[in-house]
C-alpha cells in the first residue's frame, strides 16, 4: 500500500518534471531573442513579448480563416515575426541603441501599450484557441509516467533549436562577428564587420524565434492581447537570472524557471508566482550579473 502510494507520488513528480521541462524549453525559445538583445547588446526591450504575440496571432488567423495546417503555420509565424522585428529594428529600434536604459524602457513600454491596444482592436480581447492536429493531442503512458505528446513535440523542437543556436553562436562566422560586435562595436566596425547589419539580422532572428515560441506556446500559455505584459517578467527573469554571456545560462535558467513554476503551481497553488519572484530578487541581489555569468 505504502509502496503503491510512493510510486504514484513518484510518477506524478515525473509528470510535473516533464511538463516543467517542456514549459522551460518553450520559455527559452520565447526569451532567447531577448537574451541576445538585452543580454548581449544591452538593450532593455520590454516589448519582446509583442513579437511572440504576433507569431501566435498569425497562427490563429492562418488556421481559422485560411485553414492552413498547424505545422505549416509555424515557419510562417517565424517569418512574420522576424519581418516585423526587422522593420521595427531598422525604423525605430536603431535610434535607441546607446540611449539610457530609462529611454529604452519608456520606448519599449510605449510599443507594448500600442501592441496590446492594437491586437485588442483587431482581434478582440477574448483568449484565442489553437486547434492542435489530432496526432499531437493526448497523453501516452511511458513506463508509468503520463507524457503529453504535444509537450514531447515542443521539447524536441525547442531542444533542437537551442542546440542549433549554440552552434551558430559559437561555431559560425556570423556568430563570431556577432560576439565581436557586442564586445566592442567600434573596433568591430574598424575591422570591417558590418555591425548594424549583424544587429539587424540578430534582432530579426530573435523576434522570429519569439514568434515561433508564441505559435507553439499558444496552447500551453494562452493567447490574449495582454500576453506581452503577462510574460514580460518571465522573459526578463530568464535573461537576468541566466546571465549575459551566451545562451547556455538563459537555457539553464529557462528550464529551472519552467520546472519551478509548474511544480510550484502544483504543490503550493496558494503561493502562485510568489516564489519565483522571490528567488529572482534573491539571485539578483546576491549575483547581479546572473547565476551563470562571470562579472564583466
Amino acid at each position: 500500500m505504502l509502496l503503491h502510494l510512493y510510486l504514484r507520488a513518484m510518477s506524478a513528480m515525473a509528470t510535473i518534471l516533464f511538463d516543467g521541462v517542456a514549459y522551460g524549453m518553450l520559455l527559452f525559445v520565447l526569451a532567447c531573442g531577448l537574451a541576445v538583445t538585452l543580454g548581449l547588446m544591452n538593450f532593455v526591450n520590454l516589448a519582446h513579448g509583442a513579437f511572440a504575440m504576433a507569431g501566435g496571432y498569425v497562427t490563429v488567423v492562418l488556421m481559422d480563416r485560411f485553414g492552413l495546417p498547424f505545422l505549416a503555420c509555424l515557419p510562417i509565424a517565424f517569418a512574420a515575426a522576424a519581418l516585423l522585428g526587422l522593420v521595427l529594428e531598422r525604423t525605430l529600434y536603431v535610434h535607441m541603441y546607446g540611449r539610457s536604459p530609462l529611454d529604452q524602457v519608456l520606448f519599449s513600454i510605449g510599443l507594448v501599450f500600442m501592441a496590446v491596444a492594437f491586437v485588442d482592436w483587431a482581434m478582440g480581447s477574448s483568449p484565442q484557441n489553437i486547434k492542435l492536429p489530432a496526432w499531437l493531442q493526448g497523453r501516452r503512458d511511458v513506463f508509468g509516467v503520463q507524457v503529453g505528446i504535444y509537450r514531447s513535440f515542443i521539447i524536441v523542437i525547442c531542444g533542437g533549436l537551442a542546440l542549433a543556436l549554440q552552434l551558430a553562436l559559437m561555431r559560425t562566422r556570423f556568430g563570431s562577428r556577432l560576439r565581436a560586435a557586442v564586445d566592442d562595436a567600434r573596433v568591430a566596425r574598424g575591422l570591417g564587420i558590418p555591425v548594424s547589419t549583424v544587429f539587424a539580422v540578430t534582432f530579426a532572428v530573435g523576434s522570429g524565434l519569439a514568434g515561433l515560441g508564441g505559435a507553439l506556446g499558444a496552447e500551453i500559455l494562452g493567447l490574449d492581447p495582454n500576453f506581452p505584459l503577462r510574460f514580460m517578467i518571465y522573459f526578463l527573469i530568464v535573461v537576468t537570472v541566466g546571465g549575459t554571456s551566451g545562451i547556455v545560462g538563459p537555457f539553464a535558467a529557462s528550464l529551472l524557471l519552467g520546472v519551478a513554476d509548474v511544480a510550484g503551481k502544483y504543490y503550493l497553488p496558494a503561493l502562485g508566482a510568489f516564489m519565483i519572484y522571490l528567488v529572482m530578487i534573491a539571485v539578483l541581489v546576491l549575483r547581479p550579473h546572473g547565476l551563470f555569468a562571470r562579472p564583466r
Partner: peptide, 20 residues
C-alpha cells in the same frame, strides 16, 4: 547593488511579490 537593469528587475519583482 547592480546596474540600472538589475534595479529595474528588483523593483519590478518587489511590486510583483507584494501583489502576489
Amino acid at each position: 547593488r547592480g546596474s540600472d537593469l538589475t534595479r529595474l528587475m528588483v523593483t519590478l519583482g518587489v511590486a510583483m511579490v507584494l501583489g502576489e
